[in-house]
Design a protein around this nucleic acid. Structure first.
Length: 111
DNA sequence: CTGATGACAGTAC
DNA sequence: AGTACTGCCATCA
């Protein structure tokens, strides 16, 4: 069935919702999966405007190289890191996520 | 439609 | 390795 023209935000939410627990995806990857490669910044805007009633696992979206970029908005970085560690995501000594271990590979969701 | 903004990304120093 | 600057793209006034 054909869906109506979904906005970029709609597609982003859908992609983020697909990210399995214990895995993370970069903004760039989400943007590409949403159909607009290079729109990483736009992805950030979408996630920022989510809301408290959103069940979207926004914390599974990280910056390039597994860096937490949410520090730009607030102390959200602390919450995000706690949530990720809670899911079993490992960080290295520099506060970066071990992407080699936790980078989400679309299609290969079998763990 | 033009301009400003922003949970980014890549390059330069 | 950390900071600064530029580029890209979607949303908002």
């Amino acid at each position: 069935m054909k869906h109506a023209e979904e906005s970029f935000a709609e597609r982003v939410r859908r992609v983020v919702a697909r990210v399995p627990r214990g895995r993370v995806a970069t903004y760039g990857a989400v943007a590409a999966l949403a159909g607009s490669p290079g729109a990483a910044r736009a992805v950030g805007s979408v996630l920022r405007a989510l809301g408290s009633d959103s069940d979207l696992p926004w914390w599974r979206v990280v910056g390039a190289g597994g860096r937490i970029t949410t520090s730009r908005v607030r102390r959200t970085a602390q919450i995000q890191r706690a949530a990720l560690e809670n899911e079993g995501v490992g960080f290295d000594g520099s506060g970066r996520i071990r992407m080699e271990r936790h980078e989400w590979e679309p299609g290969a969701e079998s763990d």
